[in-house]
């Protein structure tokens, strides 16, 4: 028996635009602290934090921002933030 798996369309973006960071943004309250600055940032088209997993990965989609820029913004808010390699 052969099973045919439908390939789901997860995302259709250029993967070079995805910036990933390991953080300590662990809770919904932590998330609320970073929300205003990330939501209002014109160069960020999409962002999310995986608070369900151990690395609390911050994932940002942006055409033009660099890792360093995000790291300094997040650190200013008192959180740890390192590029995820």
């Amino acid at each position: 028996m052969i099973i045919e798996l439908e390939k789901p369309t997860v995302m259709s973006i250029d993967y070079n635009q995805i910036l990933l960071f390991k953080t300590n943004i662990r809770s919904e309250d932590d998330k609320k602290c970073i929300e205003p600055i990330l939501n209002s940032h014109k160069k960020i088209s999409e962002w999310n934090v995986d608070t369900e997993d151990v690395d609390c990965v911050l994932r940002i989609v942006s055409h033009s921002l660099t890792h360093d820029h995000i790291i300094s913004e997040i650190k200013k808010l008192g959180f740890q933030c390192n590029e995820l390699i």
């Binding site: 997860v10 993967y15 990933l20 995986d50 994932r59």
Partner: peptide, 15 residues
């Protein structure tokens, strides 16, 4: 694979 690769494929664990 690296954790970063996983997060390129999938937005988060839930996804």
């Amino acid at each position: 694979v690296s954790v970063a690769t996983l997060y390129i494929y999938y937005k988060d664990k839930e996804t």
